[in-house]
Write a protein that binds this DNA or RNA. Sequence first.
RNA 1: GGGGGUAUAGCUCAGCUGGAUAGAGCACCGGCCUUCUAAGCCGACGGUCGCAGGUUCGAAUCCUGCUACUCCCGCCA
Length: 561
Amino acid sequence: MKENLSRLIQQALDSLVEQGQLPADIQPRVQIDRTRDKSHGDLASNIALTLAKAAGVPPRELAQSICDALPGSELVSRTEIAGPGFINFFLSEDSNQAIIKRILAQGEAFGRSNDGQGRKVQVEFVSANPTGPLHVGHGRGAAVGDSLYRLLEATGWSVSSEFYYNDAGAQIHNLALSVQARCKGLTPDDAGWPADGYRGEYIVDLARAYQRGDKVDAEDQHVIAAGDAGDLEAIRKFAVAYLRREQDLDLKAFAVHFDVYFLESSLYQSGEVEATVRRLVENGHTYEKDGAIWLRTTSFGDDKDRVMRKSDGGYTYFLPDVAYHLNKWQRGFERVINEQGADHHSTVTRVRAGLQALEQDIPDGWPDYVLHQMVTVMRDGEEVKLSKRAGSYVTLRDLIDEVGCDATRYFLVARAPSSQLTFDIDLALSQSNDNPVYYIQYAHARVCSVMRKLAEQGWNWDSSAALEHLGLLGEEHERSLLRRLDHYPELVANAAANCEPHSVATYLRELAGEFHTWYNAHKMLVEEQPLRDARLALSEAVRQVIANGLQLLGVSAPESM
RNA sequence: GGGGGUAUAGCUCAGCUGGAUAGAGCACCGGCCUUCUAAGCCGACGGUCGCAGGUUCGAAUCCUGCUACUCCCGCCA
């Protein structure tokens, strides 16, 4: 709808230029906004305000000229000049009702677009090391990242999701030592328990499985336990696979899928880490100090230089990070979005600096990052900090088991990633309108229920016949719903472009609210068939948009509750 | 000390890339509810958009400087 109006305005401007009322060299950016206040019409443009100065004409006067030059259209019933020089558009009944036709015709495709034009984008998220069950923070990353994946897919991008993990570093070594200690019957407070060992109960299960000689099938690896408590390398391999599988199960329960699992160790095996070092040294961006090799990241905006090869010959984590991102670039992702916890924000500058230092014509500012803030979990008004299994943190699994996948996903994705998030377990569990997930799903189920009721009464609903009677939708609530439905495709496009899945959650909440209000105010299954058909058409359109929106969030759309 | 993030109604949060009188849900208050799905519906109250400047026709939104809270600042990942 905005595009249509935008074209009309552009035509008006062109003709004003021809008539010499506007200078030919203006570069108007036609902006159309949704009005907040209904008395301002349905859509408004500030075009006269922005062009007034260049045209040397007072804004309201210019607005009048533009209106006069506007070609006639069936979409617009009238225009009005208001305030300092806004042009308000009142849409015709026809154009309002057209949205229902579009939604019913397009079904699941409504709101999808081809903005991405099949270009390759990668979303990396979660990327937890296999040292324990996923925690709530990973859950937030999973909910946001997977939603981004769905949004990009829906807007025409060729998307790949990726999970990167370190399977060989110091933390994994600690993990292996912890399992070994458990195999030997030690507990965390015994003498001889490894420093920085993992203390959670899950290590006990892991040790038992190892000693039993269990077989583990994870998404990307398969291992049979050697059972020998003295073989630290065998323990390491088994522990990594075991916890990898455990995380797989958490993610599966969370309805999250990854296209690629990428192992940090593969970058060493392939020689990419070495090659990256060589390249950085050759490009003259490094120097030696205190027996270590430093990368001069300050040349690329960092506040201090960083060690890339330690004095003991090992690499710091950031070097494989750079090699990894070069690998992504070489795989042809013109756009990469890394979803991470905000506690990792310091890597952003470092990785970008490292990539620039490679001098491979990687665009400055590549890749993109979406950083999410901390999550705190509340129950009975108090913060929950521990889980039995993991010991020191609340696991994603705890939440899914307690409140379900749908509620967990919704709550974790519903806030702007940049905001700290409080997860209220009591609210997520409540079956009332206070609970937004329930409220939205209920709106969907309600439409399905009405359709069932219709059949019980021996009536049927002919969607094509119904479209003839959309003119009967004249109630204020109905117009308001139509406006909101019309907004959906643009909302999806913006959410994808700006990496803001939470705006879909907000939208659905508002749409559901408006639907419930309408439903409570007017009867759907009235005796007069034309009106009944028209209302059912609107209901069905709302149901479709809710279903489409929930899909983007990875939340189910139940037909009954 | 340096950097990231946040600051909007009593609480939890939106705010469409700078638009018109800043919105929603809870909570509180006042009414209505015997219904196509039932766990309710309608309305009222509630704001110096952290503070101070700046940019312009116009600022919660952009710039600068403060303040508070939070995360990070390792030859850990």
